[in-house]
Design a protein around this nucleic acid. Structure first.
Length: 359
DNA sequence: AATGCGGGGAA
DNA sequence: TTCCCAGCATT
């Protein structure tokens, strides 16, 4: 379908110009030190929907703590989540460990180089599969992410909506034909590097672009209009009362979240969805839900946290614990030192910080 | 095909 | 504010 678009450029010189630019301009990134398939894998998972600069410190800490497949396979999930704390999309961490354990047992600790085996692993989708195969194993497989779709939509002047699955498959077909069979690793990374450094979403630096001469969008001045992307819908707002419940010794009650869905298996201070509960029923609801009684104390502040699909509006209250906690295994009563060893989502890390600042 | 899933930085 | 980032799983 896009064959006619592909014929509008000289594939051989496009490859040459792009890869040569990459070799002269690529960034020195921690996961480019070697081609260890495990490290390539970890980096690619961390880089899903996450910028390079954000990932670098996480990658270094993670590899330092879990240097090998075996080390990660043997770790506790809570340890892994603690290393992922703040990076977001926590199911990535849980899926990664799940898949690594499978590699340890089923594949004797060797990351499979077979596309079907690799793609069957939890958390390894079309992009990550192609990235590992090309970068670690130098196989000519496409690895199409947001960068690649942006670059190719401009170079080939493709005006289909890139949020559509159909469109992504078109790009994969194009990438498969464009990829340099002599150096798939450099080619794939070159497209992404170009997207990150030159062919940026806004104000691309076309004057410095190594493939400007090949770019159909630049030729007619529509590079800023591409790619075409349908807008996301607005986030839903949810209001919570967050309870800072301390006992006489200064231990705080924390709660482990469910093992699926938002922020799965992370910890937080108890939260009350106040809109649906109502202030009048707060204490009773807390007793029914958590098994402890409180009396609401002073308001400590407010916090707004924006997720990609919803917004938390948090009101933080002190609360006094009355009596005992009756058998709730997802609750823990911990002091401040212990608090720091549990994985928390960012808004609750911020709450913790204000807690410590007040003393 | 549509939706859920984090958090941050750039403009 | 808005965008969007080296996406994937689930429905």
């Amino acid at each position: 379908m896009n064959d006619e678009k592909l014929q509008s450029i000289d594939i051989l010189t496009f490859r040459r110009d792009l890869v040569e630019w990459y070799k002269n301009n690529k960034r020195d990134l921690p996961w480019r030190q070697d081609q260890d398939p495990y490290k390539v894998w970890v980096s690619e998972v961390m880089l899903q929907q996450t910028k390079v600069d954000t990932v670098i410190p996480y990658f270094n800490r993670f590899i330092n703590k879990f240097p090998t497949i075996e080390a990660l396979a043997e770790a506790d999930e809570q340890e892994v989540l603690k290393e992922w704390e703040g990076l977001g999309y926590y199911s990535r961490a849980r899926n990664l460990q799940h898949a690594v354990r499978e590699v340890a047992t089923t594949y004797k600790g060797q990351v499979p180089n077979d596309p079907d085996e690799l793609g069957a692993l939890k958390g390894v989708g079309p992009y990550t599969k192609g990235a590992i195969l090309s970068i670690a194993y130098n196989q000519p497989e496409p690895a199409v992410d947001g960068n690649v779709m942006r670059v190719l939509s401009r170079v080939l002047k493709i005006e289909d909506d890139i949020t559509q699955q159909r469109t992504k498959k078109q790009f994969e077909a194009c990438a498969r034909k464009l990829i340099d069979p002599q150096d798939p690793s450099s080619f794939n990374q070159a497209v992404m590097e170009l997207g990150a450094l030159i062919c940026t979403p806004k104000s691309p630096t076309c004057l410095l672009c190594p493939v400007q001469a090949h770019c159909q969008a630049f030729a007619v001045g529509v590079e800023e209009e591409l790619p075409i992307k349908k807008k996301a819908k607005k986030q839903k707002k949810i209001a919570y009362v967050v309870l800072l419940v301390a006992d006489e010794q200064g231990n705080y009650i924390i709660e482990k979240r469910k093992d699926s869905g938002l922020l799965a298996n992370l910890w937080q201070f108890p939260m009350v969805p106040i809109e649906e509960i109502g202030w009048n029923h707060l204490e009773n609801w807390v007793y029914g839900e958590f098994g402890f009684r409180v009396s609401l104390g002073k308001k400590q502040g407010e916090l707004r946290h924006i997720f990609s699909h919803l917004i938390w509006q948090l009101e933080i209250y002190e609360a006094r614990l009355i009596g005992e906690i009756v058998g709730e295994q997802r609750l823990q009563l911990v002091n401040k030192e212990e608090l720091a060893t549990y994985p928390f989502p960012v808004p609750h890390q911020k709450i913790m910080k204000t807690l410590f600042a007040n003393e």
